[in-house]
Simulated scan of single mutants.
Amino acid sequence: MIDVDTRQVALPDGGRLVCHLVPPDPDGPTTGLTVVWHHGSPQTGAPLEPVVQAARARGIRLVSYGRPSYGGSTPRPGRDVASAASDVGHIADSLGLGRFAVMGASGGGPHALACAALLPGRITGVVTLAGLCPPQALRDWTAGMVAPGGLVAAAQGRSARSTFAETDEFDEASFVDADYAALAGPWAELGRDVGLADQDGPDGLIDDDVAFAAPWGFDLRDVRAPVLVVQGERDRVVPASHARALVDGCPDAQLWLRPADGHISVLAAVPVTLDWLLDLPR
């Protein structure tokens, strides 16, 4: 069994963030690379087994954490996407990290980009998988989404998004067959973790959606670290148009399109994206 070091990081405002550290396999390679994982919406921030195994096999130290209102982290209504950079900066300082890479899936993608834009000199590379682009980057930001109601409500403010949450139900058409196969197989733990996050209430997801639909607090042009955008072409939650907009907006970005993947099955690319991060200068 892998020993996960879970700790609470104190913030200047009196809040706390729950973070998790997974060391490299002591009997395996050691690369010196640390990757901070930004979870999707909603999740607890606990490390997911497929990510843990891929990181340990490559000698990578993995750090994950719960954003405010997730996984025991202190709520912070009104937070923007940019605030993730300050949060991760405090986590990194508490762990003695200098330079590190960031990776985000789905709702974690924008927060990973925030770190690269607002922690200059500390981020060696960024990976986003099925991540959103800023609203102003597309003429119709929700086009192609099967169930955009949460984001549409979020654009009207937190109160409207909270009201929407009272009757919101998951639309099964949001996932394609490959997504359901991933959730029944290697990514089953992700589904369980979403269930745990749901038990804590909707505040984390509400605050995420409101942050996504509002100005992010940074410009994609400020993301100077190399960026890898990974996208399933069959994604019905975050369409491929978002991936293309991210690549167009970031100064140093490349796009990996996966034709057969949807929103969850695209996570099968995690191991090769870690290889990509390892190949970057540190």
Results as ranks from 00 to 15, higher is better:
I2C: 02
T6S: 14
R7H: 14
D13W: 12
R16G: 02
V18Y: 10
V18S: 07
L21R: 14
V22W: 12
V22H: 08
V22M: 12
V22C: 12
P23L: 12
P24H: 11
G28N: 09
G28K: 07
T31E: 08
H38P: 01
H39K: 06
H39Y: 05
S41T: 15
Q43D: 08
T44M: 06
G45W: 05
L48R: 05
L48V: 09
V51C: 07
Q53I: 07
Q53W: 00
A55R: 06
R56G: 07
A57I: 03
R58A: 11
R58W: 13
R58Q: 14
G59W: 06
I60S: 02
I60V: 15
L62C: 10
V63D: 02
R67E: 03
P68E: 10
S69D: 15
S69W: 10
Y70M: 03
Y70P: 00
Y70R: 04
G72T: 10
P75Y: 01
R76Q: 14
G78Q: 10
G78P: 08
R79W: 14
D80P: 00
D80V: 15
V81D: 11
A82H: 03
S83R: 13
H90P: 00
A92E: 05
D93W: 06
V102G: 09
V102K: 10
M103K: 01
A105H: 15
S106I: 04
A112V: 02
C115N: 10
A117H: 02
G121V: 12
T124V: 15
G125F: 09
L129H: 09
A130K: 05
L132S: 13
L132C: 10
C133D: 03
D140A: 12
A143H: 09
A143W: 04
M145Y: 02
A147Y: 08
P148N: 03
L151I: 05
V152G: 00
A155G: 13
A165M: 14
E169K: 11
F170N: 00
A173N: 14
F175E: 09
F175R: 13
V176G: 07
A178K: 06
Y180G: 02
Y180K: 14
A181S: 09
L183M: 15
W187E: 03
E189W: 01
L190A: 10
G191I: 10
R192V: 06
V194Y: 05
G195I: 05
Q199A: 15
Q199Y: 02
D200V: 00
G201W: 03
P202A: 07
D203N: 05
L205I: 00
I206L: 07
D207G: 07
D209L: 15
D209H: 13
F212M: 08
A213I: 06
A213S: 14
A213N: 08
P215Q: 08
R221P: 00
D222F: 11
V223G: 11
V227T: 14
L228C: 13
L228R: 15
Q231P: 01
G232S: 07
V238G: 04
V238N: 08
P239M: 11
P239S: 11
S241R: 13
A245M: 06
A253C: 07
L255R: 09
L255K: 07
L257F: 01
D261F: 08
H263W: 04
I264E: 05
L267S: 11
A268R: 13
A269P: 02
T273R: 11
T273E: 12
L274S: 02
D275I: 05
D275C: 04
D279C: 09
L280W: 05
L280R: 15
L280D: 02
P281F: 05
R282L: 13
